[in-house]
Nucleic acid binder design. Structure first.
Length: 189
DNA sequence: TACTCGATCGGA
DNA sequence: CCGATCGAGTAA
């Protein structure tokens, strides 16, 4: 049986470690027709607190950022550039605004592409990320990730945050060699 | 109410 | 490189 991801774990005040730890977990979507799809999480970014000038919570508590102040374990979904839905996992204890952007899953690299493929939009905002009843949740399927399979680098598209915060190596990617067997590739011609 | 500017992507 | 497209945040 698949083990869920624990709320208690997501409420630790360790945003960057949680972003790293999310690699290798699965994002599971149950569609309206009952079909389910589990995708390996392969790329994440950490956004941590009001002090983090790349984080939406840099402006403090507003209607949009309120969900980030919730205890870890719910989704934060917002519209980016008027076009793309961005999926984030709220992490940390209540009152500490932090989230992890799900930037890539196996079969869909890019935060806008994955939400489009999995039909994720702002209706999931503030819903539970641990409860299958929400239709979108996290599962730990026991995949072991060697430390060396993870690489870190600066977050993408946050130059507005200034050199210090833009340079934080808070973007994490899982080397493809650590992914479990992918759907069979079409035979070469 | 009038601006400005995005945690992106696809097409020139 | 540029345009799409719209909502949040800010100033007035």
């Amino acid at each position: 049986m698949p083990a869920g991801v624990e709320a208690k774990e997501l409420q630790r005040k360790k945003t960057v470690a949680l972003a790293r730890g999310l690699l290798g977990k699965h994002l599971v979507r149950r569609f309206a027709d009952g079909r389910t799809e589990a995708r390996l999480i392969v790329e994440t970014e950490a956004y941590d607190g009001e002090r983090d000038l790349a984080c939406h919570a840099r402006v403090g508590l507003t209607a949009r950022t309120a969900v980030m102040y919730e205890p870890g374990g719910c989704w934060y979904v917002y519209l980016c550039y008027g076009v793309h839905e961005m999926l984030n996992l709220v992490v940390g204890p209540a009152g500490w605004p932090a989230a992890v952007l799900i930037r890539g899953v196996a079969g869909a690299i890019g935060p806008g592409r994955l939400t489009r493929q999995l039909e994720i939009d702002r209706r999931f905002n503030a819903r539970s990320a641990l409860d299958p009843a929400s239709g979108l949740w996290l599962e730990d399927r026991g995949l072991r990730i060697p430390r060396g399979a993870i690489s870190a680098g600066p977050r993408v598209g946050v130059d507005y945050a200034g050199p210090v915060w833009a340079a934080k190596p808070w973007r994490f990617t899982l080397a493809q060699t650590a992914w479990p067997a992918l759907p069979p590739a079409p035979p070469p011609r």
